[in-house]
Design a protein around this nucleic acid. Structure first.
Lengths: 232, 232
DNA sequence: AGTCCTCTGTGAACGGTGTTCGCGGTAGGG
DNA sequence: CCCTACCGCGAACACCGTTCACAGAGGACT
């Protein structure tokens, strides 16, 4: 079909349905949904080709008819969850607009904790991923800055959302075994007496709820810094 | 030796040398160095038990005498790299002090690109890791904020350094195949005509050097936001 | 000195992973 | 109608992390 050098390397440029042979028994949407289900339950590492194939009731290697590699499957997964993004209306106040967008993305991260592992990398370059970028750039329309700088600011915003979500999710996500080991070592650090600042920071009781709206306090400042714009 | 329930779960509380038997042929430092070498060359995924064992000239499973799991090996690696951190002197100007610390950590990330994958998670809780935290908290001494909040600010700082380093390293790190696929899709997005903002941001030529000192513009603002302190 | 007894390194093995290859069969395009 | 491109599948390859029993060495105690 393709002359080997013409076959698109990007999955998003390969049409899902081939013209010639028998109809495929599955589709990208179903595969992505199955993989997302597995990841929601057991994290990204629980997503293996064989398990996904098992969920949709296919042979182990049938997935390679739809996807070139596991990385492409992850791209499919991220695109699928980004489709659920609820975009807020733009008001023209760009800081508030980007913040609202970041909150929507944050909601996705809460619903699918594994997304933080993917969003830490480069910004998502998939159909729904570019929609996200487009909306973010649209929110930044009033800002006077070169396009590349804006794009970088958007990438940083996405990374910040992922970072904040990860730290807040870290409490429940990690293994019990692992956190107990961590606490065990920290206790020994405290009693050792070196690192007095750290000891005090750990032993002081937490002031009630922790911090609410960390994103709201961080993101506007990150944006002003990234865009090189004077504080307004 | 330990009553099974007393054996420390944290590797940092287990003494390296056991008293009784023959002397170990290797040590944690050598193992970590070998693993770091592999990771520097081929990324974190190139670090496998068998390869590390091969580098130090040991059998495949000898490593499990020194390390309980691959995760612990990664902890060893990160701690080894953090030992090289060049700590700047504290001046009392806490923003500048934390920024200098962040720059030192950033240097480590440049030298060992795989560290960004590790630092994105929780802050490093290892001997040299707690030294880093201690120094950061010492730099934040003049700030009036609860210890937990300061600790969270430090965690965010580390995450920010990793994020910035990752985005700047992304250009050379990813596979040529993968980036070409990405560019291929982006071109198609541009010619499709939807997403005009994105198209403009991509096609506008980069203004010379890009941005220098992104960290210097971002970190102080992040700190003020995270610490809930009035801008000074 | 002699005797334990614990620790060390090892090779085989298990279950799992991503991925490739070749096969039989099916169904649309010429 | 036929042929060819595609689908699904099973076997296989090369890894991966990890477990286990075993041979041997060498400090600790008598």
């Amino acid at each position: 079909m393709y002359a080997e050098s013409e076959r698109p390397r990007s999955i998003w440029l390969r049409s899902e349905r081939a013209g010639r042979g028998p109809a495929p028994g599955h589709d990208r949407a179903g595969i992505a949904a199955a993989a997302v289900g597995l990841a929601d339950a057991g994290g990204l590492e629980a997503v293996s080709m064989r398990k996904v194939a098992g969920v949709i009731g296919a042979g182990a290697t049938a997935l390679y008819r739809y996807v070139d590699s596991r990385d492409e499957l992850v791209q499919l997964m991220l695109d699928a969850v980004l489709a659920d993004l609820r975009y807020p209306l733009l008001t023209g106040a760009w800081r508030a607009d980007v913040l609202a967008l970041a909150r929507a993305l944050d909601a996705v991260c809460r619903e699918h904790p594994w997304t933080v592992d993917v969003l830490q990398g480069q910004p998502p370059m998939s159909p729904h991923g570019v929609v996200l970028l487009e909306r973010a750039l649209a929110a930044l329309e009033p800002v006077d800055a070169p396009g590349q700088v804006k794009l970088e600011a958007v990438a940083l915003t996405i990374g910040l959302v992922a970072t904040v979500a990860r730290t807040e999710l870290a409490a429940g996500r990690s293994t019990e075994e692992w956190r107990s080991a961590q606490e065990e070592y920290l206790r020994s650090v405290v009693v050792a007496g070196e690192h007095p600042h750290l000891a005090r920071a750990i032993t002081t009781s937490t002031p009630a709820s922790g911090d609410q709206d960390l994103l709201g306090r961080l993101l506007p400042r990150v944006l002003t810094g990234a865009l090189g714009v004077t504080d307004a």
